[in-house]
Amino acid sequence: MKILVCVKQVPDAKDVRLDPKTNTLAREGVQSIMNPYDRHAVEAAVRLKEAHGGTVTVLSMGPPQAAEVLREAVSCGADEAVLVSDRAFAGADTWATTYTLAGAVRKLGGFDLVLCGKQAIDGDTAQVGPGLAWRLGIPYVTCVRRIEGCENGLLRAQRLMDDGYDEIEVELPALLTVVKEINEPRIPSLKGKMKAKKLEIATLSAADIGAEPQCIGLAGSTTQVVRVFAPQMTGGKTMITGTVDEIVDQLAAKLEALR
């Protein structure tokens, strides 16, 4: 089975803060990490390979330093890594991102299965998986929490729904996006780390994948960010003061009135 996993390098979202006064993001100490959901996608791919044979290729679109997350994926069991990187990709929204990733997938040849994370924690959009499947003309299943089996070109899985889950069957080739419950990602092995260190990472430019300049990066994006700001806090903010008894009396009166 030929498996492709899309991985993204993201800033560790929990450290990102917007300074409400200057309206700029505080980047001090913000680390770049592999998107957490994508680690589960890599693990799912490696387990499928171990069960059914085949290869796992990891693909990322991003700046040159995104190679780090590709190496991390290889240290966890992926076989090959490809970076699509070009200044012209900057400013891409999900529409331009799926165009670029799809171009890279075509260049690399067909895959039986493409795995993505449910969403990337920088934007939380969860759009790249479904959009990429559409570009590739293959079926997809989102929020997969378990892969139950794979035979005769059919993959059986469970997808998480708001009120429970669905057991589904999908024809391969297909794309899945995975949630964290699907598995516990392994710690890189020493052998894996050695391999990752030595691995040549193939880099594809916009020209290599035959991308049209008007379809990539900012120019190829359908959405535009018009404003970035710190979340607003808007309360009436009446402070209730006094002794504990006085406070309790006032609170009780307000609550009685609202009942």
Partner: peptide
């Protein structure tokens, strides 16, 4: 249509438009 959404785990808000399509 101006569309506002949280990003970066809710630490940042972004307003987005879809100008051409």
């Amino acid at each position: 249509l101006l569309q506002t959404r949280p990003a970066f785990g809710g630490n940042v808000m972004a307003t987005i438009e879809c100008p051409h399509t």
